[in-house]
Design a protein around this nucleic acid. Structure first.
Length: 259
DNA sequence: ATGGCGGCTCGCAGCCGA
């Protein structure tokens, strides 16, 4: 089973690319972030034309998450329980015995910004939600744009980024606390030291110079982690004309495990 | 070098992203 995540930075703009990518990559499950489209405008027909079911949770201009799959998505849940959020950043569903969450963690803007404590609160709520998800489904995938570079080696210039949003210690601690619930960072585990970045600034030729960050993640709960065969960043897609600033990440999992 | 690019909107300037 192929599970992928991609922050498309506007589904409307990226739809032709996404259609080509789906046809070529054929993931079983794809989680999308920053769709930036309200539900009434969601291009669901484009997905069904390619044989995908899709569920979505969006708003105009900002945020927006979706999950597409080659079969039925059930028990669809919007947002995080016990955390009232006007922003569309979390959508989860079950597929073939898996629970999958498409996450767009707040950016935080800057440590001094009111958006930074919101980010930390959001991460706290995600952790609480993850405990609940795990109690219902041991096979859990948390994936999306976490807006956290877990370690210095996930940053092209750690010195320049030191102490700023995306790398600050409270965020990294929150990320580690999530992992400590029983998850493996699939890209780091399967890609090793050379796993690369997932986001590059549009400005200053950042992609050409490989000045990026690794902030998009696929976290696999224990039963899935042991079944994971590969996890890669699709850099080629970031190199296309008019790209998203994020590359897709794709994991290959031997699932369902036949008992 | 705090800009730069690119996406969005009751739009043509200002916001947000990472």
């Amino acid at each position: 089973m192929k599970i992928a995540t991609w922050n498309v930075n506007s589904l409307r703009v990226r739809l032709p690319q996404l259609e080509a990518w789906l046809a070529a990559t054929q993931p079983d499950v794809l989680c999308l972030q920053e769709t930036k489209v309200r539900d009434s405008d969601f291009p669901a027909a484009a997905f069904s034309a390619l044989g995908y079911q899709v569920v979505f949770h969006g708003q105009p201009s900002y945020n927006g998450v979706a999950i597409a799959a080659r079969g039925a998505l059930t028990d669809v849940e919007v947002g995080l329980e016990d955390f009232a959020d006007e922003q569309c950043r979390c959508l989860s569903a079950s597929y073939q015995g898996l629970r999958v969450a498409s996450l767009y963690v707040p950016n935080g803007t800057a440590l001094e910004s009111p958006r930074y404590p919101y980010k930390l609160e959001w991460l706290r709520a995600l952790r609480a939600q993850t405990v609940r998800w795990l109690s219902r489904s041991p096979a859990l995938v948390l994936t999306g744009d976490f807006n956290i570079a877990p370690e210095d080696r996930d940053v092209y210039d750690p010195k320049a980024w030191e102490g700023s949003v995306l790398v600050s210690e409270p965020e990294r601690t929150a990320f580690r606390e999530l992992l400590a619930l029983g998850f493996t960072d699939a890209l780091r585990a399967l890609g090793g030291d050379q796993c690369g970045f997932t986001w590059w600034d549009y400005r200053a030729y950042a992609f050409r110079r490989d000045q990026g960050l690794r902030i998009d993640h696929i976290l696999l709960s224990d039963p899935l982690a042991s079944a994971c065969r590969a996890c890669v960043v699709d850099r080629e897609t970031r190199a296309h004309a008019r790209p998203s600033d994020h590359a897709p990440v794709v994991a290959e999992i031997a699932w369902p495990i036949s008992l």
